[in-house]
Amino acid sequence: MKVLDLQCPHGHRFEGWFASADDFESQAKRQLVECPICGAKEVSRLPSAPRLNLSGANDAQSSSDAGASQAREWQARAMHALREVLEKTENVGDRFAEEARRIHYNEAPARNIRGVTTPEDAKALVEEGIDVMPLPIPAALKEPLQ
């Protein structure tokens, strides 16, 4: 099993596990590998080396590792928050604007909803005094995780 360091065009770094480097190349060419944060399928392999415990390792590497660790921790927190939003909202799909209005005008039961709408409809909702917030959901969260 090969653990590879990967990155999408948006700078999201993550690990991928593959049977071999050739397996990664094959899957990447067929666009089967995607960023777990944004769903981008243009994924590239980053240079990586085995981790070695060497006495006297320089502080610069340690600082770089700390920065990467903080980035991974932030991404993990963001993914956790998105999962929580998904668990606590009802997906009304492309009926979002209609359902948000029905809830706002007490024509439907109050509840937390999510869905899809056009930028124009979102602007109209805000102008009506209906609070909405765009929330891009990574493809990795749209289906159940294994």
Rank of each mutant, 00 (worst) to 15 (best):
S55V: 11
N106H: 11
T117V: 11
D23S: 05
V116E: 07
A40C: 09
S20C: 04
Q31H: 15
G129R: 01
A28R: 10
L54C: 07
P47G: 11
A110N: 07
V116K: 02
P119G: 15
I130Y: 05
R101C: 03
P119L: 12
F18T: 00
P9Y: 10
S63W: 14
E127I: 07
A68V: 07
F18Y: 15
T117N: 02
R30N: 11
E73Q: 15
Q61W: 11
N91M: 06
Q70I: 07
S62W: 08
C35Q: 03
Q75T: 08
V126A: 15
S69I: 02
R72Y: 12
G93S: 05
P144E: 08
R13N: 13
D59R: 12
C38F: 05
S69E: 09
V132E: 03
W17Y: 14
L32P: 09
A122N: 01
E107I: 04
I37P: 06
G56W: 01
S20Q: 02
A100D: 06
F18R: 05
S62V: 10
K2G: 00
V43G: 10
P134M: 00
P36W: 01
R111C: 01
A97K: 04
E84Q: 12
Q27D: 09
R30T: 08
E25M: 08
V116M: 06
T117Y: 06
S63T: 12
M133Q: 11
R102M: 09
D23T: 02
A76T: 13
A66P: 04
Q75D: 14
A57S: 13
A68E: 10
V85N: 06
E25S: 15
G67R: 13
C8Y: 00
A108M: 03
Q31A: 11
L6A: 06
E87A: 15
I37D: 07
K41C: 07
S20E: 01
C38D: 03
E73C: 09
A71K: 14
R77H: 10
A21S: 14
V116S: 00
E127G: 05
M79S: 11
H104N: 02
A122H: 01
Q31T: 12
D94K: 14
L82T: 10
A140S: 15
C8K: 02
V85F: 10
